[in-house]
Write a protein that binds this DNA or RNA. Sequence first.
DNA 1: TTTAATAATTTGATATAACAAATCAAATAA
DNA 2: TTATTTGATTTGTTATATCAAATTATTAAA
Lengths: 226, 226
Amino acid sequence: MTIHLESIERADTLTEQVCQNLREALIGGMFPPGERLTMRFVATALGVSLTPVREALGILAAEGVLEMLPNRTLIVAPISIDVLREITEIRVMLETFASKTASKLLTENDIAAAVSANDEMIRATEAKDFKRAIRHNRDFHFTIYRGAGMPTLFKMIENLWLRTGAYVNLTHPGFGLMPKAVENHNRAAAAIIARDGRALARFIEIDIRLSAERLEAMLKAKVEAA
Amino acid sequence: MTIHLESIERADTLTEQVCQNLREALIGGMFPPGERLTMRFVATALGVSLTPVREALGILAAEGVLEMLPNRTLIVAPISIDVLREITEIRVMLETFASKTASKLLTENDIAAAVSANDEMIRATEAKDFKRAIRHNRDFHFTIYRGAGMPTLFKMIENLWLRTGAYVNLTHPGFGLMPKAVENHNRAAAAIIARDGRALARFIEIDIRLSAERLEAMLKAKVEAA
DNA sequence: TTTAATAATTTGATATAACAAATCAAATAA
DNA sequence: TTATTTGATTTGTTATATCAAATTATTAAA
């Protein structure tokens, strides 16, 4: 007899949990860039010992999400304008490639999910619920990128998003309301439905560059203020 | 009085040293893909405690260089053909971009270094000293990529190289001798001197695809053998 | 001899202890 | 008051101890 049972997944390691926890906090804009993260603080906040926290922070630092100062202090990595521009060009390459690849592979479910995420995002923006809007924006993009079926590419894109994540909460309010951006998003959704990879890639690129411009303006303002 | 002293760099953390050590071993092909790495083995081999080893392995695993099996065992990440193709496409995008950017920025020293690395690589290949050839090939490529002045991009490229690193030592002997590859390398060197970014990018792409084909053939042979 | 059950060993996960470097606070001297 | 020095505290680094899961070795049963 061969019974088909679901394979039991072992519970995540504490390190993985801490990592994920911090990632979500970063995406949620809980820590502003430059904020210092001490190990004992994170450890007591999450109720674990130093060991898994240290490992998690080490991983995030290796990914460039956190930055280690010469004193060995870890801070949420601030982004210079140069690095932002660099990340933007890389994002354009990777995300347009993922979009083109995905457009042929997306299931009907994927398409429905992406379109609904887009709708929800616009609705949330209109309701000025920016946290929700940001989440749905993420869902929209990542539903597409995941659909490309390329795990390495996906991970790389995720990482680049994470690195700007701490800033997104700061730029988005104004950005979400821009008619240009909304219109662009809707066109992207239409391109998904039509499985028009080239068009989708074009709109994704515009989306990336629009938000990068936004962020750059914000960074410049910050530099001047200092 | 203001004396200008060189800033003292703190010695690397044990974790960083272990990380670097393992990276070099991987590049050098010391561990075949699939090889298991136990923490205690690495720890005693390097004469440190488990803690820094565990952190280093965690980082390498997060980077995809090592793979964690369901049992929590860490092995040198084997590469499937699908992932190889994925990595190849990403490499083409990132490395041609880096090449184009670098061609305008390279200093005369950089150019000299790249050209000399190329010469050395060909000479080492002719002498059938493949270890040396591999090292100089790396130097050639990374001198260019570093010249783009894009730290994030550079890190990403480095990581992709590392992931195929464990295989390179297996494919290279035959590859290095291919007249097509040698000729292509020489043309790339000429393009660097001429600061012809577009041409350089073209040759880099050919180089990537040639070696990827090589590797893919090897992987297929391996799969059949199993 | 092969299989099943049990014991011994290895290995990864986590917490804690100990130390050194860095930071901060308080006290003292200018 | 301002600057300097000393002392106390925090923080990162590393090693070790402990435990549970997994693997391997051994023994007993078929």
